[in-house]
């Protein structure tokens, strides 16, 4: 295993401090916790937004703490949901008297730990609400299973809920907007190569040189099937087909896309995919308003990418395009 670390046990600890070192104007670490909060808290009377999950998805989630997005991010161990006491610390840091929204990705561990944290917060008199992101269309939804996973589309939930909270909307309004995003959000990804969880020391799965995993989760968990590697056009077409069918996108629908790198795919290749998305959107007749291109929700050094579509109306698009200033996403901010 080749890793730029000192010891497996201290990866998360040292990385959290490193983020504060690199972004002191944005981030402050709550002492004795794995919580990164805004260096300058938002005004009181505004809804707070907390997200989090296992580490290894950088820039998620600490990278989205700042004006217009999150108030606090809670980091667990690598690919392991944070514990309830840590989430509670995040909730307290984000509480400015108007309630706190928790943005949770739909994994059994995340859902349970955030639930327990909410019970603890309610006991302390802090109003909370939670939304569960389940944008991954690779895995079937069913009454009898845990439902779909939450992946890269979660960043759009952070952005839109965060923008609304910044405007002073109520907790109910922010929850409704976040659920509106979730209802119009779908993603799917693939992997060319596995990642290596530091504590495990070896690749989570093996792929032959001409093989790929379709429908990969963001923790290196296997996807729907293995297949021979295909080109950008075919892969984009496959992902787009699944996503468009899931969202029942029809011609003249307005959408925003995200082409997300999993950690080891060059921006050059992600840009090729973005170009494919634009071409194929034109072919299908729906209106592609914007493409977010880059690494938004990674899986350590996994090679691969995910595609997300969000159906937008004017309100949602405005919130998505409104100013935000965070380590990982900065837009519409005037300097000086």
């Amino acid at each position: 295993m080749k890793k730029l670390i000192n010891s497996v046990d201290r990866v998360v600890e040292e990385a959290l401090d490193g983020l504060v070192v690199a972004f002191p104007h944005y981030l402050s670490r709550i002492p004795n916790s794995h919580v990164l909060a805004r260096a300058v808290p938002k005004a009181s009377g505004k809804v707070g937004i907390v997200s989090g999950g296992g580490s290894g998805h950088e820039p998620a989630h600490g990278g989205y703490v700042g004006f217009g997005m999150l108030d606090a991010a809670v980091a667990g161990e690598v690919f392991t949901s944070p514990t309830p006491d840590q989430v509670l610390t995040g909730i307290k840091a984000a509480d400015h008297g108007a309630g706190v929204l928790l943005v949770v990705k739909n994994y059994t561990g995340d859902v349970m730990n955030f639930d327990i944290a909410r019970e603890m917060a309610e006991a302390e008199g802090i109003a909370t609400a939670a939304v569960t992101v389940n944008d991954d269309v690779a895995v079937e939804d069913s009454l009898y299973t845990s439902g779909r996973r939450g992946i890269a589309g979660t960043v759009f939930v952070h952005k839109i809920a965060g923008a609304l909270a910044e405007q002073g909307a109520s907790l109910d309004q922010v929850v409704a907007a976040a659920n509106g995003v979730i209802a119009n959000l779908a993603s799917m990804g693939f992997a060319f190569e596995s990642c290596t969880v530091p504590a495990a020391g070896k690749a989570t799965f093996e792929l032959a040189s001409d093989e790929m995993e379709m429908g990969i989760g963001i923790h290196g968990e296997p996807g729907t099937h293995r297949m021979k590697v295909e080109g950008a056009s075919e892969l984009t077409s496959y992902l787009l087909g699944k996503i468009v069918a899931d969202l029942e996108i029809t011609p003249d629908d307005r959408v925003v896309a995200m082409v997300n790198g999993m950690g080891a795919t060059p921006l050059l290749e992600l840009a090729v995919m973005a170009n494919e998305v634009a071409h194929q959107a034109t072919g299908a007749g729906f209106i592609l308003e914007q493409v977010f291109l880059g690494e938004f929700m990674t899986s350590l050094e996994m090679a691969g990418a995910s595609l997300t579509l969000l159906r937008v109306d004017e309100t949602r698009l405005e919130l998505l395009r409104s100013a935000c200033d965070t380590p990982a996403l900065r837009q519409g901010v005037r300097i000086g």
Partner: peptide, 10 residues
Amino acid sequence: LSTVGGASGA
């Protein structure tokens, strides 16, 4: 509860 994390910890 405060050390394991994940579904097992909860």
